[in-house]
Simulated scan of single mutants.
Amino acid sequence: MVVHRPLKAGGRPVIVRGEVVGLAHSDHEVVEFLRRAGLAFGEDVLDDPVWVEWKGGRAHEYETA
């Protein structure tokens, strides 16, 4: 899963297995996208680089500075 940099309007595009699955505004939404992709994990997986790559901006931040 790749969580891209926050958009100017807020939220981060999320890609799972090469497919855009949505725009996340919170860690909870990122976990929900994982669940919908058949990967049931808790929020602790968000800090595991094996599962989630945060691109641009700081991890867990969903608004632009």
Rank of each mutant, 00 (worst) to 15 (best):
M1G: 08
V3A: 09
V3E: 00
V3Q: 06
H4R: 15
R5M: 04
R5E: 15
R5A: 15
P6I: 03
P6S: 10
P6Y: 03
L7M: 15
L7H: 12
K8V: 09
A9Y: 08
G10I: 02
G10Q: 11
G10H: 09
G11D: 04
G11C: 03
G11Y: 06
G11I: 01
P13G: 05
P13D: 09
I15N: 08
I15W: 07
V16I: 14
V16R: 04
V16H: 02
V16C: 12
R17L: 13
R17T: 10
G18P: 01
G18W: 05
V20M: 14
V20I: 12
V21R: 07
G22F: 11
G22Y: 12
A24K: 08
H25E: 09
H25Y: 14
H25S: 08
S26F: 10
E29D: 11
V31I: 09
E32C: 10
E32S: 13
E32F: 07
F33A: 05
L34S: 00
L34E: 01
L34V: 04
R35Q: 11
R35T: 08
R35E: 10
R35P: 07
R36Q: 13
R36D: 08
R36V: 10
R36N: 09
A37E: 05
A37V: 04
A37I: 06
G38Y: 07
L39V: 14
L39Q: 04
L39R: 02
A40E: 11
F41N: 07
F41P: 07
F41G: 06
G42A: 11
G42W: 00
G42Y: 02
E43P: 06
E43W: 04
D44H: 12
D44N: 13
D44P: 06
V45M: 13
V45H: 06
L46R: 06
D47V: 03
D48G: 05
D48R: 14
D48Y: 06
P49R: 08
V50R: 15
W51S: 05
W51E: 02
W51K: 06
W51V: 15
V52E: 06
E53F: 00
E53I: 01
W54H: 07
K55C: 14
K55G: 08
K55F: 15
G56P: 01
G56E: 02
R58K: 14
R58H: 12
R58N: 04
R58D: 12
A59Y: 01
H60D: 01
H60V: 02
H60P: 00
E61P: 01
E61S: 15
Y62S: 01
Y62M: 08
E63Q: 11
T64K: 12
A65L: 09
A65D: 10
